[in-house]
Design a protein around this nucleic acid. Sequence first.
RNA 1: GCCGCGAUAGUUUAGUGGUAGAAUUGGGGACUGUGGAUCCCCUGGCCCGGGUUCGAUUCCCGGUCGCGGCCCCA
Length: 424
Amino acid sequence: MQFSRPRGTRDFLPEEMARRRYVEKVMRETFESYGYREIQTPVFESLELIAAKSGEDIVKHLYSFKDKSGRSLALRPELTLPVMRLYINELQRKPKPIKLYYFENCFRYEEPQAGRYREFWQAGIELIGTSYPEGEAEVIAIAVEVLEKLGLKDFELHIGSIGILRKILRESGVKEKEQGKILHLIDKGEREKLENLLKKLKISGENKRILLGILNLSGEKKEVVSKARELLKGRAALEEIEKFESILRFLDLKVQKYSLNLGIARGLDYYSGTVFEIYANRLGAQKQICGGGAYSLAGMLGGEETPTCGFAFGFDRVMLALEAEKEMNIDSKTHVLVVPVSESLLGDAVKISSIIRKSASCELDLMRRKLGRALAYANSEGIPFVVIVGDEELAKGCVTLRDMKTGEQKEIKLSELERIGEKL
RNA sequence: GCCGCGAUAGUUUAGUGGUAGAAUUGGGGACUGUGGAUCCCCUGGCCCGGGUUCGAUUCCCGGUCGCGGCCCCA
C-alpha cells in the first residue's frame, strides 16, 4: 500500500455507509419531527473560540494550526461552541425558541482505541431561548426516542443536576471559578481531592455534609428526590430540586426507564442545570453514547444571556452499540441488471437502461460479460432482476425479464419498461 | 503522553536466515442466448527505515499503522 489513512481515521465501505446513512436518517427525521432544523458550521473555527472555555487538557487534544496569514485555527472538537457562536452571530433576534440540529464530523487528537477515533461524528440538537421544564424534558425524550426507534435495547439514561450542585456551592459562598474546579473533581470522581479543596475553601461542615450527601444520591427517582429534599430542607437549593422534579414529571410522560445520579457533573464549565448521559454498557470503556443538559454559554461568548440545552450523540458509538446488539441488514442494491446477449446490442442496452431508470435503479453490465457470467454476477451481488436484451425479443419490441430468485422469465414490451419499477 | 499484543496477495491465513505456498475474491476459458456446481488459466503479497549477516520476509532496534487498555473524554 502506497498511502495509508491518517491514524485514527476510517474509510467507510458501501455496506457500512448504508447502515450509517440509515441511522443518520432516523436521527434527522426524529429531530425534524420536533421542529429542529439543520445547520452547518465550518470544520475549523478560530482557536480562541474553541479554547475559550476549555482547559489545558482540551487544548492539548485539538488539531490546531496557523493558516497562511498567521491566524490561529482549530478543527472543531465538538459542536456546542460553534453552534452557539452561530446563534450569537446570526440568530439572536429570531423568535424563540430556536431549535437547531447538526450532523457533523469532529476532530480530537487522542490515542485511538475502541470507540474512539480522531475523526468522529456527532449528531445533536440545541434548544435555545427557553428554560421551561417541558423544554428540557423534551430534549431528553428526543434522545431516548431516537434510540428506541433504532431498536437499541441495552442503554441506560442517567440524569443529574448541576443546578443543584451549583446552588449549594453558591449558598456556601463559592465563587463561579471555584465551582468549576469543584465540578471538575466531581466529574472525575476524585473524592479525596474534592474534600481537600472544600477544606481549603473553608466550606462549613454542614454545607460539606450536604454536598457530599447529594453527590452520593443515585438510583430510583422517588427515593433520590425525597432524600435530596430532606438534605436541602430550608435551603435555597430546594427550589432547584423543585425545578428538577418538574422536568422529571414532564419526562415521565414519555420516558419511564431512567435513573437519577446527582453525582453527574460533566466535564465542562458551562453546564448549569439538568444534565444527562446515556450509556451503552456493552461498549466497555467508551460506553457513553450521548451526553447533554442545560448550559449557559451565550453570555460567555459575548452574546445576550439566554437559557439553552441540548445533547450530542457520539454517532460512531451509537453505530457500535447497534452493531453489537443486532444484525443490521440495510443495503441499497441495484434492482435490475441489463445484459445484452451480444456486443452488437450494446447500444440498445444503453437505451433500455435509461428507460428502466425512470422507475428502478438499474445498471448496465459494463464488463461485456457473457450471459451466463452476467447472471452469476447478478446472483452474487444480490441484484434481484436481470433484463436480457436479445435480437429475437427486440424484433418483437420486447426484452426478457428474469427473476433471479425464482428463475422465472417473461417477455416485456418496451413500452411497459418505463414503469417496470412498480411491478418489481 | 504511557502500556500490552500484532502486521505475509483485495480478504482469511501457512511457512522460512538462501526473497514464499494455500483458500477465497477478482478477470478469463471449458459453456459463441441463461446463475448459485465442477475443472483449468491469469492477476496479485512478506508495512517502512536502520542494525547483525555472505545473505533478512524471518533475528534485533526504531518508526508507522491496527486491535485493546491506562490517562483523558468537551
